[in-house]
């Protein structure tokens, strides 16, 4: 069965969607990611959609579901690399991806995940002494 690879890098999981996904592939990714977060105890998920030529309501819903599920499993999600034409279309379609954090590119997305993880560690263990 066709699957989208999920890479592990330290405390993070990375996904790059490089194919025009049919609906079942999107559902499989959602399930696979949820399982991997739970198996690995990952603290962050980065999803790169820079290759996606469109995001319709189905894919938009999948991104929202992944963000919600990972939050419940104690991980942050950030979606990066959305093309400008896709962003314009998505908003006109009526989806604003509420609850999904986004960043312009992979670097910015990783910064967001690291900062968020640092902030959470600080809150748990107190501020580190400089």
């Amino acid at each position: 069965m066709e699957r989208i690879p999920i890479l592990r890098m330290g405390e993070y999981l990375l996904v790059t969607i490089q194919v025009d996904m049919h609906d079942r592939l999107a559902m499989t990714l959602q399930d696979d990611l949820t399982n991997r977060i739970s198996e690995t105890g990952a603290k962050g998920v980065l999803i790169d959609i820079s290759s996606l030529e469109i995001v319709d309501s189905f894919i938009g819903r999948m991104l929202g579901n992944i963000a919600s599920m990972s939050r419940v499993l104690d991980a942050d999600t950030v979606v990066v690399g959305m093309r400008p034409a896709v962003a314009i279309t998505l908003v006109e379609l009526g989806m604003s991806l509420t609850g999904v954090r986004t960043a312009l590119n992979v670097d910015a997305g990783m910064d967001l995940l690291r900062n968020s993880l640092d902030a959470r560690k600080d809150a748990l263990y107190g501020s580190r002494i400089q």
């Binding site: 609906d23 030529e53 469109i54 995001v55 319709d56 309501s57 189905f58 093309r83 400008p84 034409a85 896709v86 314009i88 279309t89 998505l90 006109e92 379609l93």
Partner: peptide, 17 residues
């Protein structure tokens, strides 16, 4: 235009589903 292409492709995707 690229934006118009994206719009009509997205509409087609919704309607095909």
């Amino acid at each position: 235009s690229l934006v118009d292409q994206t719009k009509v492709v997205t509409a087609a995707s919704e309607l095909a589903r």
